[in-house]
Design a protein around this nucleic acid. Structure first.
Lengths: 194, 194, 194, 194
DNA sequence: GTGTAATCGAGACGGTACGTCTAGTCTTCGT
DNA sequence: ACGAAGACTAGACGTACCGTCTCGATTACAC
């Protein structure tokens, strides 16, 4: 009944070698100077093995992200009970990550890759932090009455990640008060002094 | 005494022809498939004339932006006296521009180009609207007492543009309430009903 | 155990197309204005396919000669029993060939190419006639007692071909008695009148 | 009344600098890799100054030869009273010159240049020795009854030089008996033993 | 076992574009 | 007017990769 498969099966070893090689070369050379030939050579694999399973360079990079070969887990906001300091800590962590020179080429290349491939954009978005954990933390703040109840929490994460991405694109250096100011903006004013 | 200049002077005609050709091909093919050879051919110019004056493809694109060959003037917020509707109108205008399929490749390519070249990032940022006009409008709102006096107005534009850029990268479709929600976020809550 | 051969095998069709194109363009443009790009285009072949198999332009031309794409078979001396008239006829034939305007660029270009590549020099030498056939004819003359028995027959052909090549280089026009005089020189004096 | 000449006159310093630069680069790089740009740079001269006075690269090289910038004076045959040893000595001298590795590129490049420019061919021919001095020496031998009176002496020099040029083109190594054999050929047999 | 089919590493193929070099012309300024 | 400096259009150089294809070896199911 069912479609029968004959012949050799896909080599997992090759698949992983390719993803590893892609990640290594991506971080080293950036998206624009990443070449399929170099990946194949680095992975010890024929070019056709890559073309057989991935339609484009961007799909390959996307799978690297999905499988976690490219970026560490996103920043996860803590819940200390104080939404302001938690958000600030999270923003600081994200900026710290993006400003590390080791991650510089990586992040910028991801932005370039994202402009080719929506999946990469979504993954980048998630990994920078605007994932369920952040939404969760904001929802908790709503429940605790820390923030106004009609705050569009889903959008807040995006706004913050967007600010980060824009800083990457403009190379504007961040000053140390910036996280506080961003949190002020999205939470509607500075922490009450009282 | 003074530095001597001899030999023929730079040809303005060639310079403009190159920028025009770059802009035309950029909009048509996108950043990644933009080739120096095609630009030279389109401009009726030797390749060396390009390499003589611009070190990289991204520098050439950056000059295109600076000289206004690539994008129309940024969105300029009106001052109707109502900061909320003015900001919303501006956000809507920006989204409308980026969502026009004619501008789609252009914008995404600009993001890719910006990842190579900070100048392009800055220009993109300005042209999308986070320029002095927006800051001006927000300052006016502060003076008029429309918004809380300690709003970090310089950051507000960035936050909004960042949200737009992120939408571009994730291909998340925008719903029609989004402008309102974004304005709510940055102005600290919805318009009072009273 | 044995050396493994993997990957696709060299395309004979491409090889022949390249040699044909080289021969055609060489005869048309001459060695100095022969370009690899034009050969590749004419042969319908990627440039890399040429660079993969031939290190230099002159090696390519040399293979053309070796495979007989460039010049017709050398002049072959007859054996009428009279060594003088046979040699004269052969010299006349060689001069006639070199003086034909159709062959002019070809020959001069071959001389230029030979200055880059000894193989071409040797082939040119052979094709102009100083090959085994000429040596054979002279050996027969020695055996028949037509010429002095200690004549260094191997050198005679070279001397004659050398005279031809020099005429080519100096563009000195040949007078019709020249073949006779050359044969006189190498055979040690004019034909006895008796 | 008379034609007036106005403006600066041709700079002899530039002319000589250009010829010197040409000779130096010719000997260093060979004819094929000799570029007008490099000559201009080496001579400290604008390209136009070269193009103004010489139509082609080969004309420039030809003038270098004519002015003696490229090759030393030709070999001059002595008159010891013995035509055989004088000719042999001359052939040996010519071969020695051409076989010196320092002259190797030079000579081969001259052959290449000659294929472009008849003047260079003629000069090469003369400088290698087939000039009036050689003809003179042979005429003296005729007068002295050393050689047969009807020897076409003008052609003998060409034949010898031709043999040398052919050796250059085929890279055939010369054996030490070759000069003797060549003289045997042109003088009609070996030296009588008696 | 013996086919049949799919995968693999390797690498040649027709191409496009790279960034560099040189040709030969033209323009500007200094002498 | 001539010469240096050097920008200009044009186009070949040799290299790097593209995505496709062909090769021989290997693997695994179907018969």
């Amino acid at each position: 009944m069912s479609e029968q498969r004959r012949g050799a099966v896909r080599s997992e070893a090759s698949r992983v070698a390719i993803l590893n090689a892609t990640a290594a070369l991506f971080a080293e050379k950036g998206y624009e100077h990443l070449s399929i030939e170099a990946i194949a050579a680095e992975a010890g694999v024929g070019k056709q093995t890559i073309y057989r399973w991935w339609p484009t360079k961007s799909a390959l990079v996307a799978e690297c992200m999905i499988e976690g070969f490219l970026m560490p887990g996103g920043a996860i906001p803590l819940n200390s009970g104080d939404i302001r300091s938690d958000l600030e800590a999270w923003v600081v962590a994200v900026f710290r990550f993006t400003e590390d020179p080791d991650n510089d080429v990586l992040i910028r290349s991801l932005v370039a890759a994202a402009s080719d491939n929506g999946d990469i954009g979504r993954r980048l978005h998630d990994r920078l932090g605007a994932s369920s954990e952040l939404t969760e933390r904001l929802a908790a703040a709503v429940r605790a009455g820390e923030v106004r109840p009609d705050l569009p929490i889903a959008d807040v994460g995006e706004v913050l990640v967007g600010a980060v991405v824009l800083r990457i694109l403009t190379r504007e250096p961040t000053d140390e008060k910036l996280p506080t100011r961003l949190v002020d903006i999205v939470l509607g004013g500075p922490r009450p002094v009282a």
